[in-house]
Structure formats: structure tokens, C-alpha cells
Write a protein that binds this DNA or RNA. Structure first.
Length: 257
DNA sequence: ATGTCAACAGAGTGTTGA
């Protein structure tokens, strides 16, 4: 089974890119982030026309997440991240597909840091880590995927020294990610490619994609049950070079059935 | 400091967020 994640950066602005990518690569499950549209403005029909259906949690202007499947039943588990009743941002969806628990997340960016946005990021991260521990305790196959907005290590950024003050790379963000992984999760891309640069995001500024000045901020974390099922993983980086494309590229894993 | 996008309000371009 192939599972993909893609921060589309505006589902309506990127619709031709999204459809072309889905038709070309045909993942069984797709987690989307940054829809930037309320649920009623999500192009559900165009996506259904190429064989995908699923659950959406939209929001006007910002955020928004979705989990889509192709020929697979999807059972919704949650539309919010537990732990803060007052948090109304659409950043988390959870569903069960093929007996696998899938958490689709769009972790707050957090810039500028320090400041209230960075504080929100760190609070959200703590809530997420609490929830992730509860998912591990289920003792079931779990995949956590999406835009974590964290560069885990110096290996994951083209020039680490330029990102030291950024919310994506500050010690607090890296430390929260390490605490999460150390609960017992496997960083799927890094497991298969331990020693090479892997990027999932290239800024629109200064021809970052052409210079391969990228970051790795979109991740797949696997619960221990799935460790031995991981067959392959990759980044569809060519999509980042298409016209009217997102600043992120799709990331995918292939699991044994 | 800069740079590039998209959504929005509201009608031209500035603001916000990334």
C-alpha cells in the first residue's frame, strides 16, 4: 500500500498540479495539508472524478487538512487534536484505513520566533506528543504524516547556519521532534536513506529549487508494528518544478500488505 | 534585508501568513 503526504499550499490554486500528480503516481492514501479553503470550497468533485474520496477539515484562508483514499474504505477517528478546546485551527485529522491508524498533521510554522506564534507551535507540539504517546499505547499499526514544520537535524537543511534562528530549526523545535521520535517512532525516509540529503520543501525565493536549497520538513513516522513492512519511500521532487506548484513536494512510503 | 506566492477585502492594492 502506498501512502503519500503533500502540503499543497492552496488546493484550488494547485488543483491542476494535484490532479496530475495523483493520476501519475496513484497513491492508495493521500494526506493533504494547507488546503487554504473552507470545506464548502474544496473541489471534491474534481477529485472524485479521478477516483479519490475521503474526509476534509477545511478552514477559510488558512490551514485545512484532508485524508483521501482510492478504492479503500476510510473510517474517521478525529477532526481535532485533543488537549485544547479553544484551538479552532484545522491542523489535524485521524482515520483508519486498511487497519492502519493514520494521523494527518499540519504543525504550526511558528515564525517569527520568539513570539506568540512560536509559543503556539510549542504548545501544539506538546499536545501532539501527548497524543502520539497515546496512539503508540494502542499497540496497533500507526502512521503519523504531514508537514511537521521541523528540520530534524543539520543533515536536513542545505545550509544549517542560516536557519538557526528560524522556528523550523530552533533548538526547542528540534528537541520536541526528538522527544517525539524517541517515544519509539521510526522516521521512514531517514531509515531508508540514512546518509544523504533529502529535501521536501524549497522556498519560492531566490530560485531555491533550481539551487537545491531545500529543507526536510514533511515526515513519515511509523509505529514499531510497521517497521518491518516498510518497502520503499521517496520524494516526488520533480513536482516542485511544475508550473503553479506548491513550495512543498509530495512524499510517499510503500508498505507491505 | 531581501525575495515569492495565495487568500482576502473590495475594487487597487495592501495586509497577513507562509
Amino acid at each position: 500500500m502506498k501512502i503519500a503526504t503533500y502540503n499543497v499550499n492552496g488546493i484550488n490554486a494547485r488543483l491542476p498540479v494535484l490532479l496530475r500528480w495523483l493520476e501519475t503516481t496513484a497513491p492508495d492514501v493521500v494526506c493533504l495539508q494547507e488546503l487554504k479553503a473552507p470545506t464548502e470550497k474544496i473541489p471534491e468533485q474534481a477529485i472524485a472524478d479521478i477516483g479519490y474520496q475521503g474526509i476534509w477539515q477545511g478552514q477559510k484562508s488558512w490551514n485545512g487538512v484532508a485524508i483521501l483514499t482510492r478504492n479503500l474504505e476510510i473510517q474517521e477517528v478525529s477532526r481535532t487534536l485533543p488537549g485544547d478546546e479553544e484551538d479552532t485551527q484545522s491542523r489535524y485529522l485521524e482515520a483508519v484505513v486498511n487497519n492502519i491508524h493514520i494521523g494527518c498533521l499540519y504543525l504550526p510554522n511558528g515564525n517569527p520566533a520568539p513570539g506568540p506564534k512560536f509559543d503556539y507551535k510549542l504548545r501544539w507540539f506538546e499536545r501532539f506528543n501527548t497524543h502520539a504517546a497515546a496512539l503508540l499505547a494502542l499497540n496497533k499499526p500507526v502512521v503519523l504524516t504531514g508537514d511537521f514544520n521541523v528540520i530534524p537535524t543539520e543533515q536536513d537543511v542545505y545550509r544549517p547556519e542560516r536557519w538557526l534562528e528560524d522556528a523550523l530549526f530552533r533548538p526547542e523545535s528540534r528537541s520536541a521532534f526528538k522527544i517525539l521520535v524517541d517515544q519509539g517512532w521510526t522516521d521512514a525516509l531517514r531509515k531508508l536513506y540514512p546518509n544523504e540529503p533529502i529535501y521536501t520543501f524549497w522556498d519560492y525565493f531566490r530560485n531555491a529549487y533550481e539551487r537545491n536549497a531545500g529543507l526536510r520538513i514533511d515526515h513519515f513516522l511509523l509505529s514499531p508494528h510497521l517497521d518491518s513492512s516498510l518497502l520503499a519511500a521517496g520524494v516526488d521532487s520533480d513536482v516542485r518544478g511544475w508550473e503553479k506548484t506548491s513550495d512543498h513536494a509530495p512524499v510517499w512510503i510503500e508498505l507491505a500488505d
